[in-house]
Design a protein around this nucleic acid. Structure first.
Lengths: 339, 339
DNA sequence: CGCTGGCACTCCTACCGGCGGAGTGCCAAG
DNA sequence: CTTGGCACTCCGCCGGTAGGAGTGCCAGCG
C-alpha cells in the first residue's frame, strides 16, 4: 500500500532528523532504512507528504524536516512509548528512594527527570486535595496581623497572613482555633471548606469581622491547590536545543520564569492521567514555538495529585522522552502514595 | 603625573569596553575621552598597563580589553557607585510597596533587581536569627512519624519530619508541646536552642527517645538559618552575556541550579554590610570565570538578615549595577524591618 | 624625560567567486 | 506504480584578496 509506505517514510524522516538534526534527503533515507524501493520513489512520497503539510524543506533543494503536523502524526500513530532500560529503571529507583521530605521528593524528581531526558524538567507539587486537615493554628504576629497556618496529613504546611482592623482578643483567638480544628481536623481538604460555612454564626456580631477574615484566609489555603508551586531543572540543557541561539533560547528562558506559564503548560491537557504531548505551536505561547512539552499526571490509586513533564525542542526523541516521563511519574506516584 | 594618566586610561578602557563590548584601541580612546594627549602617548601607557597585567589583547594588533585585575582596580579606585535616577527610585518604590507576604517581598525583589540591572538577580530569604519563636507545634502524621513545626515572629514557618521507633503516646505529645512552647516562645531563635538543653531531663527514661528526636529536629530548624532558600530571576538575561555562547552560558546555568553555589556566591564576602564585588576568577568556581557577582547584605537597623546580589558578565557596568544593588538592598531592608 | 608624528608591520574581518555536493523535480521507460 | 536518468538549484566551503584597525618602534622636539 502506498499510504502505508508514506507513513513509513514520515517515520523514517522524523527518526533521522531527530538523531542527526539535519534535513534528510531521499537517498540517505533508503540507505539508512531498508525500505525496499528506490530514492526516486521516496521522492514522490516526500512530495506528497509535503503537499499534505507533514514535512517541509528549509530551502529549495535541501532535505526535508518534519513540521509540527508531521511530529503530531508521528507521536499519534507512528511511535510507541519506549520503555526504559534496566539501568535506567534502577537509576530512578536509587535516586528517588531515600527521599522522605516532600520537598526532597519533588526536588529529586525534577533533577532526575532532567538528567534522564537531558531536557528541561518541570514538576508540580502534589495537590492538596487528596490529603486532609491535620491541624489549624492561628497566631498573632503583630497587634493587627494574624498568621493562619494549615497543616495537612501529607506534612504540607500552608500559611497566610491576615490583617485585622483592630487587635484580636486572646480569648476569641483560642475559641476560634478550637472551633476551626473541631470542624476540620481529619476532613479532606475539598470537603473541609464546606464544614466551615456556618462558623461565623457561632460568634457574636463584633467578633464576626475577625472570624471571617481568618476564615477567608483559611479557605484560600484550602482551595488554592491550583496555584501550586512548580519547580524546574535542567535549564542548562536548553543550549542543546539548537545552534540558532539567541533567537530561540531567550524567550524560552523568559517563559520558564513565569510560574503561570509553567502551570498552564502542564495543566492544559484534557485527561491528566494520560501522557500528553504538545508540539510546537500547539503550546499557544509565542516563544515556545520551537518546543514541545511531554506531560502527565502522577498520583496514587488512580487519583491525580499533580503533574510533571519535560520541555524540549520539537525535534526531540519522543518515544524515549515519553517513556522516561511515564516511568518517573509512575514511580513518584507510588512514593507519594506511600507517605 | 604619568601614573594618574595611566589610571585614567584604564578607566577609559573599562568604560568603553563595557559600553561597546569590543576591544578598544588608542585612537578611539583619545577621540571619545578628552585626554589631552596623542594616541601614541596612550599607546605607551597601554603597553605599561599591559605589562602590569591590567589589560590584555585578544590577539596581536587588536585593541585592549581589561583583565580581571584591571576590573578590580577599576572598582576599587576608579569608580564610584552610581546613584539611581529618580524614575528608577520611584520604580523600586512602587514595585516593592504593596508586598506584604514575605514570599511576595522576596519574589518582587528578585524580579525588580533582574529588571533594573538586566542581569541575573539572586536573593536570599531573610535569616531567622533576628526573629524569635512564636509557636512550636508537634503533630503525628502516621503512627511513627511526627511533624515538628516552628513558627517565628516574622511569619516564617519551618517544618521537619521526625521518625520515631514506635508510636508516640498522645499524652507525651501534649506535654512535650507545652514544655517546648513554655521554654522557647518569645525567645530569639539563637537563644532558644540554649533554653532546651535541660528539657530531656524532665522526662522519664522511656520518653527520652521521643523527646530527643523531636528536640533535634527543632534544633535543626532553629540553627539552620544558613541553609536558607535562595531565589533567582533574569536568567533570560544570560543570553546577552556575550556572543560566545555554549562555551559560556551552559556552565553558568548549571551553577545557578545549585543552591549551594548560589549561597556561597552571596555568602563569601567578609563584611556582609558592605557592598562586595567578586570579579571573574575571584569567584573560584569554574564556569563562573567570565562572570562577576555584586552582592550586599540587607536588613534593618544595622543587622544583616540575608543577602542579595546580581550576577553578570565581568564586562558589566559596575557603578550602575552597584548602585542598583545597594538601593534595592536598602529599600528591602526597610520593608523587612517594618514587618 | 616625556610627548609626538610617522611608518612599517601584523592580524582580523568581510567580501567575492568558484566549486563540489546533496538534493530535488520531472520525464520517459519498464 | 516504480525506476533510472538527467538537468537544475542552492547551500556551504575554500582560498585569495582588500581594507581597516591597531600596534610597536623610532627619531625628533620641547
Amino acid at each position: 500500500m502506498i499510504e502505508d509506505r508514506k507513513l513509513e517514510v514520515l517515520r523514517a524522516i522524523v527518526e533521522d532528523y531527530v538523531s542527526t538534526q539535519e534535513p534528510v534527503g531521499s537517498k540517505a533515507l533508503v540507505e539508512r532504512h531498508n525500505l525496499g524501493v528506490s530514492p526516486a520513489t521516496i521522492r514522490n512520497d516526500m512530495a506528497a507528504l509535503e503537499d499534505e503539510g507533514y514535512i517541509a524543506q528549509p530551502h529549495t533543494s535541501a532535505g526535508r524536516i518534519p513540521t509540527d503536523k508531521g511530529y503530531r502524526l508521528f507521536v499519534d500513530r507512528l511511535s510507541s512509548v519506549k520503555p526504559l532500560s534496566a539501568p535506567e529503571r534502577r537509576a530512578i529507583q536509587t535516586f528517588l528512594d531515600g527521599a522522605m521530605d516532600l520537598d526532597d521528593i519533588v526536588s529529586r524528581t525534577v533533577r532526575l527527570l532532567a538528567q534522564l531526558t537531558r531536557q528541561v524538567a518541570v514538576v508540580q507539587y502534589p495537590s492538596l486535595s487528596r490529603s486532609s486537615v491535620r491541624h489549624v493554628e492561628i497566631l498573632p504576629l503583630t497587634t493587627t496581623r494574624l498568621l493562619v497556618v494549615l497543616i495537612t496529613t501529607t506534612g504540607r504546611v500552608e500559611q497566610r497572613v491576615v490583617e485585622t482592623a483592630s487587635e484580636t482578643p486572646e480569648v476569641l483567638l483560642g475559641e476560634l482555633r478550637a472551633q476551626l480544628n473541631a470542624a476540620t481536623v481529619g476532613v479532606r481538604l475539598e470537603e473541609a471548606a464546606g464544614r466551615l460555612t456556618d462558623l461565623p454564626q457561632r460568634f457574636t456580631a463584633e467578633e464576626r469581622p475577625f472570624v471571617s477574615a481568618v476564615l477567608s484566609a483559611l479557605l484560600e489555603s484550602l482551595v488554592e491547590e491550583h496555584e501550586d508551586r512548580v519547580v524546574l531543572a535542567g535549564t542548562a540543557n536548553l543550549v542543546r536545543f539548537g545552534p540558532d541561539f539567541p533567537h530561540s533560547i531567550s524567550p524560552v528562558l523568559e517563559a520558564l520564569e513565569e510560574q503561570m506559564v509553567l502551570l498552564r503548560l502542564l495543566g492544559e491537557a484534557s485527561d491528566p492521567a494520560v501522557l500528553t504531548v504538545r508540539i510546537g505551536s500547539e503550546n499557544a505561547h509565542e516563544g515556545l514555538a520551537g518546543t514541545s512539552v511531554v506531560s502527565v499526571g502522577y498520583g496514587s490509586e488512580g487519583e491525580t495529585l499533580a503533574k510533571l513533564g519535560v520541555l524540549g525542542p520539537t525535534r526531540m526523541d519522543y518515544p524515549g522522552t515519553m517513556g522516561a516521563v511515564r516511568a518517573v511519574a509512575r514511580y513518584v506516584g507510588k512514593i507519594v502514595g506511600d507517605s
